[in-house]
């Protein structure tokens, strides 16, 4: 998962844009996300054969992303999660135990 890092103001952003929305600068560099974050909030969508969990995950770097939670039957807000991939899409699963 690629974020943009702004070398002018040291902020990260996601999705990629031509300018940094924090400072307006354009000294942006692609960086690999650490792949860690916490669940900001989530919703289980029941309008499908198999319900699925849409979530906002706050990445450790700062940006919030819309994603799926997988292998988390009972998610809670603020729980730590880690990046995984499903069908070419970044998704999040439970953090590994310490």
């Amino acid at each position: 998962m690629i974020l943009q890092f702004c070398r002018s103001c040291q902020k990260y952003q996601y999705y990629p844009r031509p300018i940094c929305v924090a400072c307006g600068g354009d000294d942006l560099w692609p960086v690999e996300a650490a792949g860690t974050g916490v669940v900001d909030s989530f919703t289980v969508v029941h309008r499908a054969e198999t319900p699925y969990t849409v979530a906002r995950v706050s990445l450790t770097e700062g940006p919030i992303v819309l994603t799926h939670l997988v292998d988390i039957p009972d998610p809670v807000c603020d729980q730590p999660v880690r990046l995984d991939w499903r069908d070419g899409l970044p998704v999040f699963r439970p953090s590994l135990p310490e």
Binding site: V65, H68, L89
Partner: peptide
């Protein structure tokens, strides 16, 4: 970046 996750 969002539609692939099929939020309603």
């Amino acid at each position: 970046f969002e539609e692939p996750y099929r939020p309603l």
